[in-house]
Write a protein that binds this DNA or RNA. Structure first.
Lengths: 206, 206
DNA sequence: CTTTAATGTGAACAATGTTAACATTAAAGA
DNA sequence: TCTTTAATGTTAACATTGTTCACATTAAAG
């Protein structure tokens, strides 16, 4: 339709649903998950508190949508990290570099946007909201499929390997956001170690 | 002092501070972090809402104390898992079994007490509350020191190795609590894989 | 035994999530 | 096009929450 919103009757918002999610993302990123409030978001988007309930069942549902949006930002950062590398990896080493890049992006997201990372996995269980796109697990898996095609991974590991890689990377990101590894310079050292360890963890053979 | 609380004047509670933490732990474990409320805890411990503020600065502070208590339960479960093994490991393999036992206990805690695991790392940064005892990181470290003494680990890794092991185990526990690996039977398979992968990750040489 | 500090109560406050009844607009069907 | 209907918004109210203040009660210290 695309009706160049001249209809500024100011009564209907136009796209409140995504406006609330966007405002929520900004609020969480700036002041943390605890600072997220329904009324405050309503004010921020210039709407009454009750209007929110036309688009979300309750605050938890809205939070879940903001969480999903966070995960999708994470996923897009992972994809972005891949765009600076050769598309179709021809060698095992190239394929491995791609896996490492996605892992690095995952950790960077956690460290740089720790408040978004904090909310990202809220209500991750309930699949009411449909799959993430992009989906970070799928991105890991694609990298491992490439490695498998090139013979760097045993087939039996295509189920286990992504789980293990994800665990290591996610765990490091999570612990890093909790300030366990000190300042960002120190984090970088540990991060490299973890990323270098992943191929051993999932038994890559070059 | 130990004054066998005959002084049941019913006005002063006796040990409200820890009673609130205990009640908080039970509430979180049963109904999740979101269900935790100050007034409700006050009712549960038979005390007025304002009384809580004689022992905690605010709800966040109380939450942080409950979180610390959760981590200490985790730590004690790790220690418990060690008590069924030979005290002083004489062989590399024995030492490795101890490391694996602690990792297994860590993951079990996450899966079996997912609500406690959820709160456990809240306010982990702020060291106002003093160190955990027992401290799960220290337990990992002790296992690795044993391995190092037996020559299974390069010295340079005594800083990095615990961080990596912790990351893998913590990440898996975290993702498992989010229901990513399906039911508990499936989780067990993945868990064994991760635990078997840790020695490769941290470059144990047997 | 008196004073003081620790620990409790009760009433009030502002702010929050939520709901219900109603208003306005956009979309659909005659 | 006109009418109806569904979608989307508003306002007012409610119960509940975290928090504070003035005050009461008890335990500990001098």
């Amino acid at each position: 339709m695309l009706t160049l919103k001249k209809t500024a009757s100011e009564y209907h918002h136009g796209d409140l649903q995504s406006a609330l999610i966007t405002a929520g993302l900004r609020q969480v990123e700036k002041n943390g998950l605890n600072s997220l409030g329904l009324r405050q978001l309503a004010v921020e988007t210039g709407v009454s508190p009750a209007a929110v309930y036309k688009h979300f069942q309750d605050l938890d549902h809205l939070k879940a949508c903001i969480a999903k949006a966070s995960r999708e930002i994470l996923g897009s950062m992972m994809l972005k990290s891949l765009k600076q590398l050769p598309d179709e990896p021809k060698t095992k080493l190239d394929a491995l570099k791609r896996l490492r890049a996605t892992g690095s992006a995952y950790i960077d997201f956690g460290v740089q946007k720790k408040n978004l990372f904090e909310i990202a996995f809220i209500s991750f269980d309930s699949p009411d909201l449909g799959p993430d796109s992009p989906n970070s697990y799928q991105i890991f898996l694609d990298c491992l499929i490439d490695l498998n095609k090139l013979g760097a991974l045993s087939d039996s590991n295509l189920l286990i390997a992504p789980a293990m890689a994800w665990s290591a990377v996610h765990g490091f990101a999570s612990l890093a956001t909790h300030g366990i590894y000190g300042n960002k310079a120190e984090i970088e050292v540990f991060k490299d170690s973890v990323l270098s360890g992943v191929p051993r963890l999932i038994q890559i053979e070059l």
